[in-house]
Nucleic acid binder design. Structure first.
Length: 837
DNA sequence: CAGTGAGCGAGCTTCCGCTTGACTT
C-alpha cells in the first residue's frame, strides 16, 4: 500500500497524474461529487438556519468505500480536486465522508495537467478553504429551494411533472421572447442597388450604392438619372488591415463552432470530446478558460515553426471575457500538437481537427491584409457606388483556421463585391454594364440554435460548462422547446434593371423564413414562462444569476455569512411562493378567445389541453345535451398567434373525400404535412394539392401513383414473411425488414437474396448505441424499473406493492400491443438464433 | 401522420453541478 493517496475528480486525469508521480503515490478519482442533498424535503432545515443534510449519492457508495479503505491505509491524503468552488466542496465532502483528520490531509490545486504543475502543487499544500465551500453550499441550497418550491406550483397550477429552475427557466424565457420578437417583426423592404462596370480586357467591377431607397419610385428615379450619367473613379483608397486569431476553445465556443461547421448538437459535441479526452488526445473538455499552459504554448510554437516556418509563430496569451469564469482548467487543446489527425470514428476525427486547428491558429501570427475601397461617382447624382476589395498580403493564422460567425447569411448580400479588385486608376472612366435595384427585406433576430442559446446563457453568466448540454436537453425533454426544421415560404421581390439604355421591371422569387435545427418554444413554454415571469420576476430575470454570483463571491471572500445571504433571498421568495399557491388554477390557463363561430355564434377559444394545444367551439351544456367541438393545433401554430380563420379551418379536416375500393379516403394534415388516409395507409399529398379542396379523383390518383412508385421500387417479396422486402432505394438496392433497413453486401445479386439470409443479416443491425444515448431514450424505462425494484424489496408491504405491479403490467401490455413490426422481427430473429444453436 | 380533450385523485414528478460506469447467458 502506498504512503500517499491523491484524489482527483476524473479517472482519466488520475491515470495521467499517476504517471507523473512516483511509486509512493496512488492516484484515484472521486468521479465528481460524492455527496448531495437527498431528494425529499428533509434535505434543508430552513428553520434551523438552512442546515443541510447530505447523503452519499447512490452511485458513489462503492467509490467512497474504496477510497475510505485506501485513505485509512495511507499516511497522507492529497485532495486534488479542481481549483474552483465545486472542486473545493468536493474536497470537503471527501474529507467528511472519508473521516479524514486534518493532520493527514492536504489540499492541493493545479490548473493544468503538466508534470511541473503537479510537482509544484505537491510542494505547496494548503487546507480546505471553508469560505469557498460555504459559497458552494449556498449555491447548492439556493438552487434546491428555487427548483423544489417553484416546480410543485407548476404541477398544481399548470401540469404535473413540469419543472422550473434558476437556469432552465431563463433558458426557456430566452427562447420564448425570441420567438415573440421574430413573430412580431415587421419586415420592411428597401431597394438595394448594385452596379456592374466594365473595365479593360473584359473585366468587370461590382459595386454597391451607399444609399438604399424606400420606394420603387425613388429607385426608378435614380436609375433614370443613371441613364443620363457617366461613371468615373472618384476616389481610390488602399489601407493595410489585419485579422487576429480567436482564442482556443472553451466548452461553449467548441459547441458553437462544432454546431456551425460540423452541424453537431451540443450533446453530440460533448460525447465526442469526452471520447477524445479519455483517449488522451485532448485536454479537459468542460472548461471556461481560454488559457494555455506554458508547456502548450511552447509545444505549439515548435509545431508551427516546423510545419509553416518561424514567421507564422506568434505566442499569445488570451484573457477570458466572461466574468463568471472560474478557470480551473486550461482551454481545450490537443495534448500533442504534432498530432494533426487521430483515429477513431469519423466525427471524432472531425472534432479533433477542429480543436487542433483552433488551438494552433491561436498561437499563430496575424493575417496581414490590404483593403481597397473604390468610390465611383455618378455625373447626374450625388450618390456614389462603392466597391471594396481585400487582398491577403500574409496569411498568418488563416493558413490553418477561420472562425465562422452566426450570421453567415448576412454575407450573402456583400459577397459579390469582396475579394480581389482588378487594377484601377483614380479618375478612370468606367463603362456601364448594368445597374440592378432589388428589394431587400429586413430580417428579424435569428431564432436560437442549441449552440447559440448556450452562447447567450454564457454571456449572461448562467450555467456552467458541465451543464450547458444537459440544460439544453432538459428544456426539450420537458416539452418547453423543440428543435426543428421549418420550410420557408416564397416571397416576391420587385426588381428594376438598367441595361443597354433601358430600364426593365421583373419579379424575383426568394425563399424566406426557412429554419434548420432551430429552437421553437411550445405553447406549454409560453404558458409556463408567462406564469413564472409574472409571479417570480426576480428569479426569472436575466440578471438574477449574475446577482447571486456576486453574493457567492462575498461568501467566498468571507465577507458575508452564507446563512444570511440565503435568508435574505429566501424570505421574500417564499412569500411569493405562498401567494402564488393561493391563486386559483382556473384563472391561469384560460386560453385565448378568438371570436365567434360565424355559423352558430358559439364562442371559440384556443387553450392548452391534456394532449396539447386545442381550439374549442362552444361550451358543454348537459341539460341541452351540447358537447363542445375540439380540434388540435398544427405544428407551427401557437395559441397566442392563431387567427379565427385558421382556427375555423382546423374543423374542416379531417374530411372524407369519397370511397375507393369500397373504403373511405380521408384527407387531413398530420405532423409531416397533408395526407390521404386509405385502408389505414398514409399517402402524402403533393405540394400543389390543397387539402381543403381536393376531390376523390385526385385522391385516387395520389394513391395509385404511390402504389405504382412502390411497385417500381420492389425487387423481391417474400410471401412467407410480408415484413421483408428487397427494394430499390435512392442509393441502390436495400432490404426493408419491419422497421429495419439492411444493406445488401456488395457483389450480391439483390434478386437472389433469401429470407434466411435476411434474418442472419438483421442480427447486426440495431439502433446505433451511442455512449450516453441509452439514458435519454430509456428515460421511461428506469422510471418503471426503479419502482419495480422497490416493490420487490417491500414485498411485505403487500397492498401498495401489488397495486403498483398490476398497473405496470397493464402498461407493459399496452406497449407490446402497440409495438410495430420491428418487435415481431426481433422475436423472429431470436427464434432463428436459437434454432442455430 | 388517426383517435382524445375538464371532472374523481393514490402517489409520483422537480433543482444545479461535479463526474462516468456496465447485473447476465
Amino acid at each position: 500500500m502506498s504512503k500517499n493517496l491523491v484524489i482527483v475528480e476524473s479517472p482519466a486525469k488520475a491515470k495521467t497524474i499517476e504517471g507523473y508521480l512516483g511509486k509512493d503515490f496512488t492516484v484515484k478519482s472521486s468521479f465528481g461529487h460524492v455527496r448531495d442533498l437527498p431528494k425529499g424535503d428533509k434535505a434543508i432545515d430552513i428553520k434551523n438556519n438552512f442546515k443541510p443534510t447530505y447523503e452519499i449519492s447512490e452511485d458513489k457508495k462503492d467509490v467512497v468505500k474504496d477510497l475510505k479503505k485506501l485513505a485509512a491505509a495511507a499516511d497522507v491524503v492529497w485532495l486534488a480536486t479542481d481549483d474552483d468552488r465545486e472542486g473545493e466542496a468536493i474536497s470537503w465532502h471527501l474529507k467528511e465522508s472519508l473521516d479524514l483528520n486534518d493532520s493527514k490531509t492536504r489540499r492541493i490545486v493545479f490548473r493544468e495537467i503538466t508534470k511541473n504543475a503537479i510537482l509544484s502543487a505537491i510542494q505547496s499544500p494548503r487546507t480546505i478553504d471553508v469560505d469557498l465551500v460555504n459559497a458552494q453550499q449556498a449555491r447548492r441550497i439556493l438552487d434546491r429551494l428555487v427548483g423544489f418550491e417553484m416546480s410543485p406550483i407548476l404541477w398544481k397550477k399548470i401540469k404535473t411533472g413540469l419543472s422550473a429552475g434558476r437556469v432552465q427557466s431563463v433558458a426557456v424565457r430566452l427562447v420564448v421572447e425570441r420567438e415573440r420578437e421574430v413573430e412580431g417583426h415587421q419586415a420592411k423592404a428597401l431597394y438595394k442597388v448594385t452596379g456592374t462596370f466594365l473595365l479593360d480586357k473584359g473585366k468587370t467591377l461590382q459595386a454597391e450604392l451607399g444609399k438604399r431607397f424606400n420606394t420603387e419610385q425613388e429607385a426608378q428615379a435614380f436609375l433614370e438619372d443613371c441613364l443620363k450619367s457617366e461613371f468615373s473613379v472618384k476616389d481610390l483608397e488602399k489601407k493595410p488591415g489585419k485579422k487576429s486569431p480567436a482564442a482556443p476553445f472553451t466548452t461553449s465556443t467548441l459547441q458553437q463552432e462544432a454546431s456551425r461547421k460540423l452541424s453537431f448538437s451540443v450533446a453530440q459535441t460533448m460525447t465526442l470530446a469526452q471520447r477524445l479526452y479519455e483517449a488522451g488526445k485532448i485536454s479537459y473538455m468542460r472548461t471556461d478558460s481560454v488559457n494555455l499552459s506554458q508547456f502548450a504554448i511552447d509545444a505549439a510554437k515548435t509545431a508551427i515553426t516546423e510545419s509553416y516556418g518561424a514567421e507564422y509563430s506568434h505566442p499569445r496569451v488570451f484573457k477570458t471575457k466572461s466574468e463568471s469564469a472560474q478557470e480551473a482548467h486550461e482551454a481545450i487543446r490537443p495534448t500533442d500538437f504534432t498530432v494533426q489527425t487521430v483515429g477513431g470514428e469519423r466525427n471524432e476525427q472531425r472534432l479533433y481537427e477542429l480543436i487542433w486547428k483552433r488551438a494552433i491558429a491561436s498561437q499563430m501570427a496575424d493575417a496581414q491584409l490590404e483593403k481597397t475601397v473604390v468610390t465611383i461617382g455618378i455625373s447626374q447624382s450625388q450618390e456614389n457606388f462603392v466597391a471594396t476589395g481585400e487582398v491577403i498580403k500574409f496569411e498568418g493564422f488563416l493558413k490553418v483556421y477561420l472562425e465562422s460567425t452566426d450570421d453567415d447569411e448576412e454575407d450573402e448580400a456583400t459577397e459579390d463585391v469582396k475579394g480581389m479588385l482588378p487594377p484601377i486608376d483614380k479618375g478612370q472612366k468606367l463603362g456601364l454594364d448594368q445597374i440592378r435595384a432589388i428589394e431587400r427585406y429586413s430580417r428579424p433576430a435569428a431564432r436560437y440554435t442549441e449552440a447559440s442559446l448556450v452562447k447567450k446563457l454564457e454571456e449572461l453568466g448562467i450555467g456552467r460548462p458541465s451543464t450547458y448540454a444537459p440544460t439544453i436537453s432538459t428544456i426539450q425533454k420537458r416539452g418547453y422547446v423543440e428543435k426543428e426544421n421549418r420550410d420557408g415560404r416564397e416571397r416576391k421581390l420587385n426588381e428594376l434593371i438598367l441595361k443597354g439604355n433601358k430600364i426593365t421591371q421583373n419579379t424575383v422569387i426568394e425563399n424566406t423564413g426557412q429554419e434548420k435545427m432551430k429552437l421553437f418554444p411550445t405553447d406549454l413554454a409560453m404558458v409556463v414562462n408567462d406564469f413564472l415571469v409574472e409571479h417570480f420576476p426576480t428569479v426569472t430575470d436575466y440578471s438574477f444569476t449574475a446577482g447571486v454570483e456576486k453574493e457567492f463571491d462575498l461568501i467566498a471572500e468571507g465577507k458575508t455569512k452564507w446563512q444570511t445571504m440565503l435568508k435574505d433571498f429566501y424570505t421574500p421568495f417564499h412569500e411569493r411562493v405562498e401567494l402564488t399557491n393561493a391563486i386559483e388554477r382556473s384563472t391561469i390557463n384560460t386560453g385565448k378567445e378568438l371570436g365567434k363561430d360565424p355559423v352558430t355564434g358559439e364562442t371559440i377559444i384556443a387553450r392548452l389541453g391534456r394532449y396539447g394545444a386545442l381550439v374549442q367551439i362552444g361550451e358543454a351544456d348537459e341539460e341541452k345535451g351540447i358537447k363542445p367541438r375540439f380540434a388540435s393545433l398544427r405544428k407551427g401554430q401557437l395559441i397566442e398567434n392563431i387567427t379565427l380563420e385558421e382556427a375555423l379551418d382546423l374543423f374542416k379536416l379531417p374530411r372524407e373525400v369519397g370511397l375507393f375500393e369500397e373504403k373511405p379516403m380521408v384527407v387531413a394534415i398530420g405532423r409531416f404535412g397533408p395526407y390521404v388516409r386509405h385502408d389505414s395507409k398514409f399517402y402524402s399529398l403533393k405540394k400543389e394539392d390543397d387539402p381543403y379542396t381536393i376531390d376523390d379523383q385526385r385522391a385516387i390518383e395520389i394513391i395509385e401513383g404511390k402504389r405504382q412508385a412502390d411497385a417500381e421500387k420492389l425487387i423481391k417479396e417474400f410471401p412467407e414473411n410480408p415484413e421483408a422486402k428487397v427494394l430499390n432505394g435512392r442509393w441502390g438496392p436495400y432490404i426493408q425488414f419491419g422497421k429495419l433497413n439492411i444493406k445488401i453486401p456488395k457483389d450480391r445479386e439483390p434478386a437472389s437474396v433469401t429470407l434466411e439470409e435476411i434474418l442472419v443479416w438483421s442480427e447486426g443491425v440495431t439502433a446505433k448505441p451511442s455512449r450516453w444515448g441509452r439514458k435519454a431514450p430509456a428515460a421511461k424505462e428506469p422510471a418503471k424499473k426503479a419502482p419495480a425494484k422497490k416493490a420487490a424489496k417491500k414485498a411485505s408491504a403487500k397492498k401498495s406493492a401489488t397495486k403498483k405491479v398490476a398497473a405496470k403490467k397493464s402498461v407493459a401490455k399496452e406497449a407490446t400491443a402497440k409495438a410495430p413490426a420491428a418487435k415481431k422481427a426481433v422475436a423472429k430473429k431470436k427464434a432463428v438464433a436459437k434454432k442455430k444453436k
